[in-house]
Amino acid sequence: MIKALRFAVAALAASTVSAAAMDPGDPAKGEQDFKRCAVCHNIGPNATIKVGPPLNGIVGRQIGSWEGYSYGKATKEKGADGTVWTEDMLFTYLADPAAFVGGASKMPMKFPDEQFRRDVITYLAQFNIDGEKK
């Protein structure tokens, strides 16, 4: 019974992540939606640390690695082995940051709306580490 329940939970999680990968977001909508994120984060050529780190080059960047930003313990541990952010990982993270890192997260917001997350991630993925659009 427990084994069947674990399988069902794993299958549901996989289908959610797969759905994120199959349905690309709208970068123009993501740019508008990013205004909610811009309270704490910058992106672009002149991005600086605010409440949170800049999000330049976030897709493909090691988790918890922006130089000069003081990440929480759980986030640092999540990226300690060199794990980098993927679009699928960001999709899961934005739904529940604390659950994703497995501990406390400095990111207090949760974004349950899947299309919102897809759009924002598609917008963010356009930027390289220097803040220039790819």
Rank of each mutant, 00 (worst) to 15 (best):
E31P: 05
W85I: 02
Y71F: 10
I129N: 08
M109F: 06
T16R: 06
Q32S: 14
V17Y: 01
A38K: 14
I58M: 13
T86G: 06
V9T: 08
F34S: 08
Q126H: 09
K35I: 09
L90K: 04
K50I: 01
Y69M: 11
P24R: 02
A80D: 13
G131W: 06
L94Q: 04
G82W: 10
Y123Q: 04
A13Y: 01
Q126Y: 03
F7I: 06
H41F: 03
V39S: 11
C37P: 06
F7Y: 03
A11P: 00
G64C: 13
F116T: 10
A47K: 10
D33P: 01
A104L: 07
N128H: 13
Y123K: 06
R61S: 15
Q32T: 14
V84L: 05
V84M: 10
A74S: 15
S105K: 07
G102C: 11
E114L: 10
I58H: 07
Q32V: 13
P54Y: 07
R6Q: 14
W66Q: 14
T122F: 06
P97G: 04
G57W: 06
Q115K: 15
T83D: 09
F34T: 08
P54V: 03
V17A: 14
D88I: 00
L124K: 11
S18C: 08
Y123W: 08
V101G: 05
K3G: 03
K106I: 02
L94S: 11
I63E: 13
E77T: 14
G64Y: 08
S18P: 00
R36S: 08
I121L: 10
A95D: 14
A11N: 01
A125R: 15
D33T: 01
D113P: 02
A20W: 12
I129G: 06
V120E: 13
A80R: 11
K29P: 01
K110H: 13
W85G: 01
T122D: 14
Y93Q: 07
D96Q: 06
A8E: 05
N46R: 11
V51Y: 04
M89P: 00
T122R: 13
G52H: 12
C37I: 06
Q115W: 08
P112C: 09
G102V: 13
D88F: 00
I49P: 05
G52K: 09
N42Y: 01
D130M: 12
H41N: 05
F111Q: 02
A13D: 09
P54Q: 05
A4C: 01
G60C: 05
G44W: 03
G60Y: 05
E77L: 15
P27N: 12
P27W: 09
A98N: 07
F7R: 12
A20Q: 14
G44V: 02
S105P: 04
G102F: 08
S18M: 12
D96G: 14
T86V: 03
K78C: 04
P97D: 02
P112Q: 10
S105C: 09
I49V: 15
C40Y: 05
T86F: 03
V84E: 08
A80I: 07
F111P: 00
M22R: 15
D26R: 11
K29W: 02
V39N: 09
